[in-house]
């Protein structure tokens, strides 16, 4: 089974990298860019009995390692 995990910064957490990207886009002439937030995309291949079991396990992976709940949100999708 394949899963895609998207990790993003929570609202209110400063993202200096996102801001630098926004500035670079502005200087390229993309003047309509209002905000950029940078995150992470993690793809996991795993063996699991069924989709529910996979989701439970992926959720535990996110909570224990893949995302830091102090600063990040995550979303799990099975592909």
């Amino acid at each position: 089974m394949k899963a895609r995990i998207t990790v993003t910064l929570k609202n209110g957490v400063l993202d200096p990298q996102g801001r630098a990207i926004a500035n670079a886009l502005h200087s390229l002439g993309f003047g309509g860019v209002e905000d950029v937030r940078q995150g992470k995309l993690i793809e996991v291949e795993l063996k699991a009995a069924d989709e529910a079991a996979a989701k439970t396990e992926l959720d535990a992976m996110c909570r224990q390692l893949l995302a830091n709940p102090v600063i990040e949100n995550y979303r799990v999708e099975l592909l």
């Binding site: 200096p16 990298q17 600063i71």
Partner: peptide
């Protein structure tokens, strides 16, 4: 808390 990328990068 957490330690994040320096504000000036």
């Amino acid at each position: 808390g957490a330690l994040m990328r320096n504000s000036g990068l």
